[in-house]
Design a protein around this nucleic acid. Sequence first.
DNA 1: CGACATAGTGTTATATTATAACGTAACTTA
DNA 2: TAAGTTACGTTATAATATAACACTATGTCG
Lengths: 165, 165
Amino acid sequence: MSPKTETSAIAFRKHDHRRCQRQLLSEARQLCEARKLRLTSRRRQVLEILLASHQPLGAYDILAELNRVDSAERIAPAIVYRALEFLMAEGLIHRIESRNAFISCIHPGHHSAAQFLICRDCEQVAEFENIDPGLLSAADNLGFAVDHSVVEITGVCAECQKHGD
Amino acid sequence: MSPKTETSAIAFRKHDHRRCQRQLLSEARQLCEARKLRLTSRRRQVLEILLASHQPLGAYDILAELNRVDSAERIAPAIVYRALEFLMAEGLIHRIESRNAFISCIHPGHHSAAQFLICRDCEQVAEFENIDPGLLSAADNLGFAVDHSVVEITGVCAECQKHGD
DNA sequence: CGACATAGTGTTATATTATAACGTAACTTA
DNA sequence: TAAGTTACGTTATAATATAACACTATGTCG
Ligand SMILES: [Zn+2]
Ligand SMILES: [Zn+2]
Ligand SMILES: [Zn+2]
Ligand SMILES: [Zn+2]
C-alpha cells in the first residue's frame, strides 16, 4: 500500500478524528483568509457538521442538525444549499452524486479531481486524488476537454468484510 | 485512437443512428428472450425513447414523451420509474448520477463497469468499458470489494470545441 | 461619519426527482 | 379454469433543490 493510498483511505481505519477536524478547520480558515473570502458562522457551522465524520450527509441531514443544535432557530433549506455551494466552490467539500450528499474534502484547496471509495456498509468514504489517469487519457486522445469528474466506487471496505456482514 | 475508443465515442461523431437504434432494440429483445424476461410494451416504449439518441433523459422527460405520443393517456411517474428499474437491472440502460438522468447502454448485457464522457454543450454521452483500472486496483490493494462504479467525466467534446462555443 | 455598493442571510413559495401503498389486469403454470 | 405471480395503473407523498425578494451586515469612499 503506497503512502498516498494509506493517507487517502484514513476513513476506513481507526484514527484520531479530532485531529482531522482541527486540521481541516484550520486549513479552511487559512484558505479563506488567503483568498479574502468570508468563512461566516453559517458557513463554518455547515462545514463543521460535515467535518464531524468521513461520512456524507444529505442537505436535509445538515439542516436537521442545524435545527437540532440551535433549537430556537427554524432554518430553511436555501440557507444550507447556499453554504454548501460556497464550500464546494472553494474546494472545502465535495458532492457525492450517487448519494445526493456532501462530504468534507480531506485535502482542501487541492484542485485536482477527487475520486471516492464508498463503503455501503459503514458509509465511510475515502477520498483519493488523481490515481486514475486511464479515462482521462482516453478523453485526451478524443480531444475531449475535461471540466469535472465524478468517480464514485461503491462496495464494502476491508473492515466491514471482516465483520462478516 | 484505438478501435475501442472509436466505437465507444460514436456519440460524438456523425453516424447512422438508425442503425444504432435497430441494433440495440434487437439486442434487447434477444437478451430478454434468453433470460426469459418480458420486454413488455411499456418497457419497450421507455427503452425506445432512450434509444432515440445518445443523450441522457430525465425520468420526467421520458414521462412527457410518453404522454405526448399517446395523448389520450395520462401516465404517472411510478410507471416510468418501474420501467427504468427493469431496464437498469438488465443492463439495457444506465443512470447518469451527475444528471439524474438515464441513457441507453451501447453494449447491452456486458456487465462490466461503464464509464462516461459527457459533453456539456451538445449533451452527447460516450460510453466506455473498463478502460480505467487505476482506482480499481487501488481498491483491490485496500481489500475493498467493489460493487458498483460511477465514473462520469463532464467536459466539451472535440466537435463542440471547433464550433467555438 | 454617512451614503453607497456589495455580499450574505432569512423567508416564502415552488420546482424537480423519486417512492410508498394498494388495487386491478395480464400472464404462467398446473 | 384456478392459483400464483408479475406487471400495470392510480393516488398520495417523500426527498431533494431552487427562485424570488426583502432585509442585514460589511466594506469603501467622500
Ligand atoms: Zn478523520
Ligand atoms: Zn465499511
Ligand atoms: Zn447512435
Ligand atoms: Zn459536444
